[in-house]
Amino acid sequence: MSTATEHSEQTEHTDGHEAEHHGLSDKQYIYIALILAALTAIEVSTYYVDFGPFFMPTLFILMIVKFVTVVSYFMHLKFDNKLFTYLFYSGLLLAIAVYCGFLATFKFFLQKG
């Protein structure tokens, strides 16, 4: 059965297999960190530079990209079993839905432009 084969393959190749399985090398992690730093720099630049109507969208997009990057790569969610993704994102999306609903009842999203 394929399970048995995979199992024995795993026990034979421990270290290399692990690194391979866990998706990224140290160099790649550093690369991602540099991207995150650059994104943070752009975020901070909104404090100094007038982005006009792009201010909010830029910040939101950057926030989401950084969030998803850390979750998917540093927390390894992209390479792990999908069940982890479902569990975590269901909590996250539930929180977003419920709390946005809560703020909406206070007309929070209507008050400013």
Binding site: L87, G91, L92, L94, A95, I96, V98
Partner: peptide
Amino acid sequence: MFLGSECLLFG
């Protein structure tokens, strides 16, 4: 799962 629940806390 714990981290999922923490989303509700910080949210």
